[in-house]
Amino acid sequence: MKKRKLHHTFDKNVDHQIEDLEQEIGSLLDEYDVEYPGEEQIIMTIDAMKPYVPVRKNKWRTVLRGMTAITKQAYQEIFYMSSLFWIANGLLIAAALSGVLLMKADPYAMVMMFAPITTIMGLIEVLKSRNAGMAELEMSYKYNFQEIMLSKMLVVGGFNLVINLLITLSLGMFYQEILIAKMLLFWITPFTFIAALSLLFVSRYRQIYAITAGMVIWLTVSGYLSQPQIIEKLESLPAELYVTASAVALILSLFKAVHIYKRGVLYEVNH
């Protein structure tokens, strides 16, 4: 095998040219040099980029956040409810108790009739912002319109629950023969049913007169239901039926509340 001899010609000019070229390229690349940032600059960049990092949505965390917000706001709402609402409810308790204790009305019929009235009356408070022309403004707040509305519903519903329990316990103390469980069934069913209807109502309507109409309808219906022969029939119905009806109404209420929270309410901001 023939070896090839390599000739190295040492040309000083070419060498200088290469050196010059390297220097030129070097200086051209200098402007692309990026100075390594300091610790502070790195932290600032991370902070600036943080808002753009997509947040993994945790469904349960969202639900929990919503519930916490509504509960927190509900506590605040208590202090801003109309005094008329509290007075009317005080009178309601007095009327229910005196109806049974003084006028000897059927206690089961009485609790059934009074059970959802607080909720129906409370709708005036719930719809107050829409009627006062505050809805558009409230939509722009941290606790937005639907959260405020659900908070008010929570106050009204919670207060209604407390009133019903108070009436039940008071009557239970006065009349030993009263069956507390039966009393509970008699008011929980209309209460949950009307609460579900109210949630449906507030998401669609805003007229106060509709509440008056609702009240009249309920009083008529409950007046009919509280007739002795009807009460007798109602008492003969199996407890499971009441429990099922209440459970369905409760599920509907929760479903509607979530729907209101997620989708908002029907409100046209068009004046």
């Binding site: 706001q73 605040q76 107050k128 022309g133 403004l137 004046h271």
Partner: peptide, 30 residues
């Protein structure tokens, strides 16, 4: 919404509230 302040063209206000009570209520909503 925490960053904005908004005053719409038509606002009704809660007429039975005093200015102070109204603003305290709005502070809670904000």
């Amino acid at each position: 919404r925490e960053l904005i302040g908004y005053l719409p063209q038509h606002v009704g206000y809660y007429k039975n509230f005093s200015a102070e009570k109204f603003l305290k209520y709005i502070a809670a909503l904000k």
